[in-house]
Design a binder for these strands. Structure first.
Lengths: 346, 346
DNA sequence: CTGAAAGCGCTTACAG
DNA sequence: CTGAAAGCGCTTACAG
């Protein structure tokens, strides 16, 4: 009795190829894997037969003998609600795939609520040998997943800054440089009161961006930097903007850590009768279609997310192959200037 | 030599459990799988040991002997660009997972450009026995993937209306009823000139929705229904809206097939000096956070996408088990009234 | 109720 | 250059 209840089709195996070619299955395996040990003629014959009968290796069999799962895992730890509007993951996944599919490696996706669940999923996935390695996103400054990855010796790539203590390679973008470029741009326009609405404080890149912001503001001699922490949501974007705009010395420019909050700010400004960009300039931290969908269209930092995915997959595959890839930096975000930024009111 | 280059940890196997318990590996397998053939006492002992050493079955070994991959596939066939803003897939995937993870079934995700690539990916995935079945989304009226699924006898579930010719089960929502409810609502407000900006004509649900729209409009005696076909994008949403609003007898209400185009319409209306909702009511076809992020907030049809995912996974797993689940309908969308709809101008 | 054995479809030393 | 065989970690009839 085979597989599914609908009377599964019998797959061709190397035994069948061996029988047709009149050689041993060992010879077939060598030929198909491009290894020495078979004559060019025999190899040709075997490849032709395999091609003709549409043979493909069974991953299960390859995994069992080769101790490779030929898949990698991506466990996204976020409440399901906040995933919808985030264009990041679909683009990132498309990038991962572009690299993985060429290497005949599958992508196993899991979506969980928090780090505790993510760790459990990691352990299970690894214990069952479903994957050869994992992609770790949304890194926290203190990240409970990392010690687990190290304890289990799971090959993994960190999507974020390298961690000196660990042996895990990282693929990262220069968040600090991007933030500085945005501050410089606003200062060049003449802004002196620039605030920042930051994302989740637990996330490492939030911390990096905030630090870069503070340094840039201080470097320009603009006084004590003003930063509001949020959880990236629409609601907190509204609240933070309201708070900033209610002060007497309200900022003339605000940088937001994503596009959703920047859009929220647009609405708050309108409600409060603050004109954008004339009285308030807005910069969104992540460029997305959303930024061109609202009015005024938002000036934003644009990252090449798909390339990020491609490099991440590449580093992970090298890591799995035991080639100790080392960390890699990918392109810094570029500032896309649209209609939400201009010189401050005089 | 084992797995990864970093000196893989030796996984525990049933042989180890058997040795510790002093029984055969067969007995261990029976005990772990809850089958008869071992005494309650032995079973207890075996389970305890397995638990203690953290044993988990190797999927590769289980697949090879049991002829089940313990994974299902989702191949998304869309240009990567259009994926970002779509909140559908992340929600849908979260729903799939909720059901799959409880059944110890993995989700293999692929993102490809078109149906040709999707078919190739399906064939490969199946030939390698990476999956036990597949989820098919974004069904076309004439869908080249279906004959391939049938030819290969791949267990699959259609995310869309049942197809009489095929033996494939479907999980669907009543798109027609949802569209009719929206038309009824607009008519009740007093609208007589209602237009529809539809999505990709090749998609089956576009056709179903357009047909329902036409019927509803004719049923209300509102004259020849006006429908503009688009590809779901922002750009075509703008173009379609511009065309509709440029006519002398322009509509007083427009229904859009998604949220992105409805947002585009908001901008076009503003540019053309048409006030929303006073001069133009707008209904978005898919509810999402975007609908509450714009001003005025958009009245929209809200689908329980996560539940859709849960049911889809459930049906697919039944299909894989050979239980011929039959098609299943899930809840119809509800109209969420916000600020973009009101009575037409007198 | 239990043990010994074959088999799933590959890979890979090891002899010839 | 090639063949015969063991092994990956399970499941599952088949004897006892």
């Amino acid at each position: 009795m085979l597989g599914n209840g609908r009377g599964a089709v019998k797959r061709p195996t190397i035994a069948e190829i061996a029988a047709r070619a009149g050689v041993s299955i060992g010879a077939v395996s060598y030929a198909l894997n491009g290894r020495p040990g078979v004559s060019a003629e025999t190899r040709r014959l075997i490849l032709d037969i395999a091609d003709e009968i549409g043979w493909r290796p069974s991953v299960a069999a390859r995994s069992l003998s080769g101790s490779r799962a030929h898949s990698v895992g991506l466990i996204i730890a976020r409440p399901a609600d906040t995933l919808g509007v985030e264009p990041f993951f679909m683009r990132f996944i498309a990038g991962l795939e572009r690299e993985l599919s060429g290497r005949r490696t599958g992508l196993l996706l899991q979506v969980v609520e928090d780090h505790r669940a993510a760790i459990e999923a990691m352990r299970l996935c690894w214990a069952e040998r479903r994957v050869d390695g994992m992609v770790v996103t949304d890194l926290w400054t203190q990240d409970a997943r990392i010690p687990v990855l190290e304890e289990l010796k799971i090959p993994a790539v960190l999507v974020g800054r390298p961690r000196p203590g660990t042996g895990l390679p990282a693929v990262w973008t220069d968040d600090a440089a991007a933030v500085v470029s945005a501050v410089d741009y606003l200062v060049a326009l003449g802004h002196r009161r620039i605030a920042r609405v930051a994302g989740l404080p637990a996330l490492e890149h939030t911390r990096v961006r905030v630090a870069a912001f503070r340094e840039a503001v201080l470097g320009h001699g603009l006084g004590e930097p003003r930063v509001v922490q949020t959880d990236y949501t629409w609601e907190e974007g509204m609240r933070a903007t309201r708070a900033l705009l209610s002060r007497r010395d309200r900022p003339t420019a605000i940088m937001f850590d994503n596009d959703v909050m920047a859009t929220a700010a647009l609405n708050v400004a309108q409600e409060m009768g603050v004109s954008v960009p004339d009285e308030l300039s807005i910069v969104a931290g992540d460029d997305s279609q959303l930024c061109v969908m609202v009015r005024p269209a938002l000036t934003a930092l644009a990252w090449d997310i798909q390339a990020y995915g491609v490099h991440t997959a590449r580093v992970l595959l090298e890591e799995i192959d035991g080639r100790s890839p080392g960390s890699r930096q990918v392109g810094t975000a570029g500032l896309v200037v649209r209609s939400s930024t201009t010189a401050p009111p005089v």
